[in-house]
Amino acid sequence: MSEFWKAYCRNRGAVVGLVILAVVLILSIVAPFWFPGSPWDMVQMPFLPPFQEGDAILGTDTLGRDIASGLAHGAYVSLLVGFVSTLVSLAIGIPIGAAAGYFGGWVDDILSRITEFFQVIPAFAFAIVLVAIFQPSITSIIVAIAVVSWPPVARLLRGEVMSLKHREFIEAAALSGQSGFTIIWRQILPNTISPVIVLSSMMVATAILTESALDFMGLGDPNIMSWGYIIGAGRTVLQQAWWISFFPGVAILLTVLAFNLIGEGLNDALNPRLSKRRD
């Protein structure tokens, strides 16, 4: 573990990423205590510029809502959607990729066609259609993001499993009478965990970007304050009140950057030989 930690810390960007993530995490935890009121409440006069005397340090929006409070409460939503949708897409992509890689033949043919189909559909447009048809809610947003982002997981797993399945320890497990599913679950999956972790970190970043874009398009959960929603609401008054759209964007940028940097650090630490293979 300490060796892993040392390798991770050698990447200075990755450490910065971890620090940013820690700040966002703490912000999402303390938000209800720091800003006890609802982020939807009017606290000040509308269009109050930032860095003035008074409560709203980052200014207020068109309805006098505190931007800082919106940012703090929105942190929780971004992280939640990012993590949960990534977990769901792992739950879809890992079984499909593992089955395709291990069983080969017609199973692989069918599963690979399905994966390819979902990969070719324009992801964001598909997510918009899904959320619009199933009505905007935090659940439909998470499901939509998961449905459009699992193909890379399946492809990664398929490749990893195919390269592992002719190794001696797998053949030994098969000879000892373990069934295909046991071999995949107990022997193969534990050996694919590091590239999956690296990919997941990048997927959380993409999921946060997608979630904010959906919110911006007006497809956010109407009951939940989110970063993308604040930017979308401030869009029409950009000329008069730049700060409404500006600060939430910085928050998204920093959070997404953090996950990308962490992904690179994990890649360096977990796959030292592959660490130059980045894209």
């Binding site: 960007g13 970043a205 970007l209 904010s212 874009a213 911006f216 993308g228 930017i231 869009r235 950009l238 759209s245 939430p248 964007g249 998204i252 940028l253 997404v256 950057l257 990308n260 940097l261």
Partner: peptide, 13 residues
């Protein structure tokens, strides 16, 4: 790296 992490719609705004 910075552009890669920037939300597209925000960069546009």
């Amino acid at each position: 790296l910075l552009f890669y992490a920037t939300p597209l719609f925000w960069m546009a705004l």
